[in-house]
């Protein structure tokens, strides 16, 4: 179900690659489609100004030394070399980010889909209540701060309180300061609030599938819900699955805010320090925008690479 391609247009495009007057044909082709440009125009202008230009600027800045006071000074690949050869904390951050992303990315993605799929089968009332319940942690701004109360390091923290009361431990555990516990707790909290954008999109996507499609499936010999999922639902959801994958990739590779709120600005032994926190640290605290941009470029390339891999996997569905 891709775009409408009328035969004339196909001919025009085909000939555009062969004939010498390519530019002229392209121009004619563009003029013939000027209504389409009216539709994309307003967004593309805004998009260019507020997204494309800033991205281009920061890619450029990544090859400079820029402290936001003096004009940027060209330093070539030096920022990139420093990252890998001299910045030990960056390497820790890379390790943490990869670990964190490898766990929260796939799990949050699966949770989003599985919960959306299961909820979708229920009756409307229960479905609405469960959707609200699962989505609430993600939508309610800084509700996740309740976890800092629960995992508070003193005896008033709920978890410590219960463990002490039951006699399982004899002194409170410093959950958010002890490197053994920091990463696992952060992961639990991030997963807790991960049923967000993708989850809602999946629910809306599943709802959008025409019921007669499933009826036809039964006639075609679909036996159980697994077959139905694999042969009917997933292929119909492919675009949404790709969308959800991108959201999971960006959320897990660019996580910073929640981690910082939970384990502080300087976590013990950098145990929960991610690349994104390193970027913010250099960008907003040390004012080294060139260096921060270099990290952003690397993070971007990593995400694109992962996205390509996931895309290849998703093509195999159904």
């Amino acid at each position: 179900m891709s775009a409408v391609v009328t035969p004339e247009k196909q001919v025009a495009e085909g000939s555009a690659q062969i004939r010498p007057g390519r530019l002229k044909t392209l121009w004619q082709n563009m003029k013939a489609n000027k209504i389409s440009y009216l539709f994309v125009g307003p967004f593309m202008v805004l998009f260019a100004i507020f997204v494309v230009v800033p991205i281009a600027v920061s890619v450029g800045l990544s090859f400079t030394y820029f402290n936001m006071i003096e004009p940027p000074r060209w330093v070539g690949w030096s920022n990139y070399l420093t990252l890998f050869l001299e910045d030990d904390v960056f390497l820790i951050a890379v390790k943490n980010t990869l670990f964190f992303a490898a766990i929260t990315g796939p799990i949050s993605y699966l949770l989003c889909f599985v919960f959306a799929w299961l909820i979708n089968e229920l009756k409307p009332k229960i479905r609405t209540i469960l959707t609200l319940l699962f989505y609430a942690p993600s939508i309610s701004a800084n509700a996740f701060m309740i976890w800092t109360v629960m995992f508070s390091g003193d005896a008033y923290g709920y978890i410590n309180g219960v463990l002490l009361y039951w006699g399982i431990v004899d002194k409170p555990i410093q959950w958010l300061l002890d490197p053994t516990w920091m990463m696992p707790i952060v992961i639990v909290v991030v997963l807790w609030m991960s049923l967000g954008v993708s989850f809602l999109t999946f629910i809306a996507g599943l709802q959008g599938i025409d019921p007669s499609f499933y009826e036809a499936g039964v006639i075609d010999g679909i036996r159980n819900r697994w077959q139905e999922l694999w042969y009917l639902t997933l292929p119909m959801m492919k675009n949404h699955m790709m969308f959800g994958a991108i959201i999971s990739i960006t959320n897990s590779f660019a996580a910073a805010e929640q981690l910082q709120a939970l384990t502080g600005n300087t976590p013990t032994d950098w145990a929960t320090w991610t690349v994104m926190q390193h970027i913010n640290d250099y960008g907003y605290v040390r004012y080294e925008m060139g260096y921060a941009s270099a990290m952003a470029v690397l993070l971007f390339l990593t995400m694109v690479l992962v996205q390509r891999l996931v895309q290849r996997l998703l093509r195999k569905i159904g």
Partner: peptide
């Protein structure tokens, strides 16, 4: 597609 994957906080200064 690609713009979704660029770290937003670096774009704050150009913005």
């Amino acid at each position: 597609l690609f713009s979704l994957m660029f770290a937003g906080s670096v774009l704050v200064i150009p913005r």
